[in-house]
Simulated assay, not measured.
Amino acid sequence: MMIKAILFDISGVLHVDKLPVAGAIEAIQRARDEQKIVRFVTNTSRSTSTDMLQSLLKMGFDLSVDEVFTAPVALRQVLQQRKLRPYCLVHKNLLPEFADLDQNSPNAVVVADAADGFSYESMNRAFQLIMQGAPLLGVGLNRYFRQNNQLLLDAGPFIAALEFACDVEAEILGKPAKAFFQTAVESTGFKAEEVLMIGDDVFADVEGALAAGLRACLVQTGKYTPGDEEKIRHPGAWLCPNVVDAVNRVIKPSYDYSNR
């Protein structure tokens, strides 16, 4: 079935440490020129959605706010809908995203990539609230990410620690949650099987997309490490050197590419 829309992960796929991947800006434009709907989906939680959009625009990417789907925004919407008061264990740069929510006497725990904010004190506070009945809400289960040419722990391991300690299961609002992918797909107007997810994370991007019925491509940039493709359990994923090759494969499906 022809691919009619593309979901792009951002960090590690379109740019690495704020430097655009070679040819990425042009690849997105080629996709648009070929009448492909494009969306940008990310679990990135070290900046607000507004700051992230402005950063991408400064790098030269052409996109609008309604094309961007971020896990923190999805999480914020759930908090508002359920009238929850969050204890925010998040990065200091992300705090403005939740600043106007009532956070007195918290009755929910929100965990994102808090970086140095993950201390015994903060984790124990989250643990105590969950043990008192507060739901555990996570931006994503990403295990790690790449920054300044090194791998760094993401939110996933800390969420897993709280799940283990409290004997609960976190509700994940970003990738790889099926609902997150469905929201992005619905915005394109096409069926899931007509949409391709391009990402550098085997579990959050590729496995999550495939489980939600999308097509998926793993690129060998960003957090990718050799052998990651062997961890993909669902069949049919593509493996491409970078986002440019992935887009070219969509535009020229008859080209002789090798599957994983």
Rank of each mutant, 00 (worst) to 15 (best):
K231H: 11
E186F: 01
Q147R: 14
F181S: 05
V195M: 10
I172L: 01
E169P: 00
E193L: 05
A212I: 02
V206Y: 10
V243F: 10
A161N: 03
Q150H: 14
D228G: 02
D154L: 02
D205V: 09
I232R: 11
L162M: 12
P226G: 01
D245T: 12
G227L: 05
G174E: 10
E186T: 05
D167Y: 00
I172E: 00
H234W: 09
T183N: 10
D200N: 08
E169L: 07
N148A: 15
Y224D: 03
E229S: 07
V244F: 12
N242W: 06
L214K: 08
Y144M: 06
I159A: 14
L151Y: 13
R215I: 02
E229I: 06
K231T: 04
K191Y: 06
V244Q: 11
G236R: 05
E230D: 11
P157N: 07
I251N: 06
Q220E: 15
F190C: 09
T225N: 03
F181G: 03
V219I: 10
M131L: 13
L214T: 07
L153Y: 10
F145P: 06
G133H: 11
L218G: 05
G156P: 01
G189M: 07
R146L: 13
N148W: 01
Q147G: 14
P157F: 12
N242S: 15
K178Y: 04
F181C: 10
M197F: 13
A237Y: 13
L214C: 06
T188P: 03
I232K: 13
V247C: 09
A204P: 00
G133L: 07
Q182I: 03
V185F: 04
G156E: 01
A165N: 09
F181M: 08
A177F: 03
E229W: 04
E163L: 13
P135A: 06
M197K: 11
D228I: 09
F181W: 11
G156T: 00
A192K: 15
L151H: 11
Q132S: 13
K175Q: 09
I159S: 03
D228F: 12
D154Y: 01
A184G: 14
G189C: 07
G236S: 09
D200E: 01
P157A: 08
F181P: 03
I251H: 04
R249L: 12
G208T: 14
P135G: 04
F164Q: 03
A179H: 10
G222W: 10
P235K: 08
V219Y: 08
A204E: 15
F181Y: 14
N148D: 15
E207V: 02
Q147H: 14
N242M: 06
A155V: 06
D167C: 01
P253T: 04
I251D: 01
N142L: 12
A184D: 06
L196N: 07
A161R: 09
V206W: 04
K223W: 05
G140I: 02
A209F: 12
A134C: 15
L173D: 03
G208R: 13
V195L: 09
A160N: 15
N149R: 15
G156M: 01
W238R: 04
G140V: 07
F145N: 09
T188V: 06
E171M: 13
S187V: 07
V243D: 13
R249E: 05
N248V: 03
Q132G: 03
P226W: 03
L137Q: 00
G222H: 11
E207W: 12
